[in-house]
């Protein structure tokens, strides 16, 4: 989708967010993250680096974790997007939530939803992933509190409960 008309730089989009159809008009330069946060008030995905380097804005696109700050909204027209707000309703999400809370898998919490969305996808695809595989699956996520050990412990515990 492109729109090169300079005096009318707006594109019609149809997004599928958390199972809901959303029709929007956006400028082509607007990111998926801005649409989610500023237009749809889905603020679980966080802005932190703006260049796909920290994972705080992770959402699922076509079921796979992506950096929402690094995608234009026009790139996801018609494709299913799931945010932390959509995930948290799912029954299979509960083990992950409980294990992370019990094992203190987060401190300030700002990077946490991004970690959680990515961890959900990893456990869904590889419930028996070992610690090394989990760490490399999450290597694109930065936690400046460095709560990494407890995050990994929580995800491993959730994997055991799901597995």
């Amino acid at each position: 989708m492109t729109n090169t008309v300079p005096d009318n730089p707006v594109t019609q989009l149809s997004l599928q967010v958390n199972g809901r159809e959303v029709a929007l008009e956006v400028e082509p330069r607007i990111t998926l993250l801005e649409v989610l946060r500023e237009r749809l008030d889905l603020t679980g995905a966080k802005p932190a680096c703006g260049q796909g380097e920290c994972g705080a804005c992770t959402v699922l696109l076509d079921g796979r974790p992506v950096n929402a700050c690094h995608l234009l909204a026009v790139q996801v027209d018609g494709r299913p997007v799931v945010t932390i707000e959509g995930l948290r309703e799912r029954p299979e999400f509960q083990a992950l939530k409980e294990a992370l809370v019990a094992l203190d898998g987060g401190q300030c919490g700002y990077c946490t939803p991004g970690f959680v969305v990515a961890a959900y996808a990893v456990l869904r695809d590889h419930p028996a992933a070992d610690e090394v595989a989990l760490r490399w699956a999450l290597v694109g996520h930065i936690c400046r509190c460095n709560a990494y050990e407890n995050i990994i412990a929580g995800i491993r515990e959730a994997g055991r409960r799901i597995g």
Partner: peptide, 9 residues
């Protein structure tokens, strides 16, 4: 507050 943080609320 950790549960709220994990849930993104």
């Amino acid at each position: 507050e950790l549960e709220d943080k994990v849930l993104g609320v």
